[in-house]
Every structure is written in structure tokens, then in C-alpha cells.
């Protein structure tokens, strides 16, 4: 790699890079949209999940300092957003869900303009605009008037303008909104690359669970303005109790009796038998990063072999983020 490709972000200095929110309550008019929200985030890929109207966009606006904060404290990159929002915004990139494309400008002019407004010198802004438009895949379209862009291109353009000043954090509001499946996958790949390989913090606000699963390592769940839960996306692999689908024939009573000695619980589900195993009771399953579900499978296989119970089907029932999300929201 050539020397020119190795650059140093201006904000990679001694400043804090995290986000701290404490006791944030916010109302546009009278009814609070956010109620006593508190959390601390370190850089990473964070999913902000919640049904429509749960306060996701408002929370992002609070993090950007776009709305006056009356109750609670928000600190971003070490700046107090009630009084120092302008300084903080030099290190933040914002991709709005609606609009955000100023008509009458070419793609490259719009991105360079936004770069200049973020404090980049004129020539640097133009150079960065070309770079980020290449990165998001709009190199060939950069001189076209942006109002003529397709929906997918507009989303990429909005991502480019959010990136032009090389922010520490990217706030993305429904970035895959209105995209076809192919466009959705490609923009999620870009976001994932930024979050996982380029050292940018990303907050992805969406109600599409698959988007969060594809990009994020941690989620915040909002419901009616309250922070309902905060957990890692792979939480289900860290849970001790895991469910296995079993189907077979043979000496079922003996098979069940032996598994019961391992602390298993049983529930019939049509032709299937759902076996809930507590992996914390199986020493081979315990690992520092979580529980190894293959150890649970191996334990069942071992019992089945010992009791000559012929298995036709054995698999761990996946716990999807969607199930977790709906369980939390509907609880």
C-alpha cells in the first residue's frame, strides 16, 4: 500500500470517542417522546431498534444536538450537546431518512458543499467528495444532477455526504428505506465495512431486524420513548438454556430419562420433541466467550447412542433477533 493511502483522522486524538446519555427526557410539544433514557456507548456498530414512533429519530436528533435538551445530559465525543453541539457536529455524520438531497446540484458538488460546511477547506472538500463517491459506488454518476438519481443512488449519496468530513460517528436513519433487495445488501455491506473495518462508530436506526443483524454487534431497543433493552446481537449464543429439535424412534422413555438427568426439559411440538438443555451443566459447553451449542448437540447424540434411539432430526432451534425483539416489544 502506498503511503498516501494511510491517513490519520484529525479527531483520533486524546478526546473521548464515546456517547453518554443520562436521564434524557424530551418532548416536542407536551407528550414526551423520550422518557428518562440513559446509556453509554463505545465506538462500534450499534442498532437502534423500535417500532414506528418509538423515538428512534428523535434520539438521533438529540445526539446531534438538533433539538434543545431540557432534561437530561447528552455527551458526544466528550462535548456537552446542550451547549457545545456545534463543536461536536464536526465529528458526526448524519444520514436522514427523508429528503436530504438538495436539488440543482451535481452529486460531487453536493458532497463537496457539505464537506465545506463541515469545516473542510474548499480543495480538500472536493478531493474528499471524489473519494467518498468512489467508495460508495457513485463514481460514474457523480456529475449528474442529484435530483435525477434513483432511490438507491440517493441513499448512497446521502451516505457519501455523511462521510465526507471523516466523522467519528455516523448516525444513519433508516438507510435501507425504499431500496430493492440488491441495493439494500450493498448499502449494508458499506455500512458494515465502515463500522467493522474503518473504525467508525455507527448507530443504525431501523425497524428492519435483518439490517441490524447484518451490521451491528449491539442493539438498543426503544418502545414508546423508553429504552427497553440493550444487548449484543449474538445474545442467544450466550444464553445457557438452548432449545434443540429432536425427532427419532426407539426407546424414547429411556432417552428422555437420561436427558432428564442432564437437567433437560421437554415439550412436544407436533412430531418434534423440543429439548431445552441447560448448557451450564455441561462442562464441555462452557467457554469464555459463551456457550458452545455443539456441546449440547454432542450430549444429545451421546445419550441417543447409549439408548439406541435412532435420530432422524437434531438441530438447535435458532433464536432470531426478530423473536427476541418481538418478545421484548410485545411483553
Amino acid at each position: 500500500m502506498e503511503e498516501s493511502a494511510i491517513k490519520v483522522n484529525r479527531s483520533r486524538d486524546g478526546r473521548q470517542h464515546g456517547i453518554e446519555v443520562s436521564g434524557l427526557t424530551f418532548a416536542y410539544l407536551t407528550d414526551p417522546v423520550l422518557k428518562d433514557v440513559s446509556f453509554t456507548l463505545e465506538k462500534g456498530a450499534i442498532g437502534l431498534l423500535g417500532p414506528n414512533g418509538s423515538g428512534k429519530t428523535t434520539l438521533l436528533r438529540c445526539l446531534l444536538g438538533q433539538v434543545p435538551l431540557s432534561r437530561g445530559h447528552v455527551k458526544v465525543l466528550g462535548w456537552d450537546m446542550a451547549s457545545q453541539a456545534r463543536a461536536a457536529r464536526a465529528g458526526l455524520g448524519w444520514m436522514p431518512e427523508r429528503g436530504g438531497v438538495i436539488p440543482g446540484m451535481s452529486g460531487v458538488a453536493l458532497v463537496a458543499y457539505m464537506g465545506e460546511l463541515s469545516g473542510l477547506p474548499s480543495r480538500d472538500a472536493m478531493q474528499r467528495a471524489h473519494e467518498v463517491l468512489h467508495y460508495v459506488g457513485l463514481a460514474d454518476e457523480r456529475y449528474r444532477a442529484c435530483q435525477d438519481y434513483s432511490q438507491g443512488m440517493k441513499q448512497r449519496l446521502k451516505l457519501a455526504q455523511a462521510l465526507v468530513h471523516d466523522p467519528d460517528w455516523l448516525f444513519l436513519d433508516e438507510p435501507t428505506s425504499g431500496l430493492d433487495p440488491r441495493g439494500r445488501v450493498s448499502i449494508l455491506e458499506l455500512i458494515r465495512d465502515l463500522a467493522w473495518n474503518k473504525d467508525l462508530g455507527v448507530i443504525l436506526s431501523t425497524h428492519l431486524l435483518a439490517d441490524v443483524e447484518a451490521v451491528c454487534h449491539e442493539i438498543l431497543v426503544l418502545r414508546s420513548g423508553e429504552l427497553l433493552a440493550r444487548q449484543t446481537v449474538d445474545t442467544h449464543t450466550k444464553q445457557a438454556k438452548q432449545v434443540f429439535e429432536v425427532e427419532g424412534f426407539g426407546n424414547e422413555e429411556a432417552f428422555i430419562a437420561d436427558l432428564r438427568e442432564l437437567g433437560a426439559q421437554f415439550e412436544p411440538d407436533g412430531r418434534l420433541l423440543l429439548v431445552t438443555l441447560d448448557l451450564s451443566r455441561i462442562p464441555e459447553a462452557c467457554r469464555p466467550e459463551g456457550y458452545d451449542p455443539t456441546a449440547g448437540v454432542n450430549a444429545i447424540l451421546k445419550v441417543a447412542k447409549a439408548r439406541e434411539y435412532a435420530l432422524r432430526r437434531l438441530r438447535r432451534r435458532p433464536v432470531s433477533l426478530a423473536e427476541e425483539f418481538y418478545r421484548m416489544v410485545e411483553a
Binding site: 446531534l64 438538533q66 429528503g99 436530504g100
Partner: peptide
């Protein structure tokens, strides 16, 4: 075009 949101996300 929701441009105000873009402007005021800048410093």
C-alpha cells in the same frame, strides 16, 4: 427537501 436537517447536522 429536508435540507435544514442536513445543514444543522454540520458545525
Amino acid at each position: 427537501e429536508n435540507g435544514l436537517s442536513l445543514y444543522f447536522s454540520r458545525p
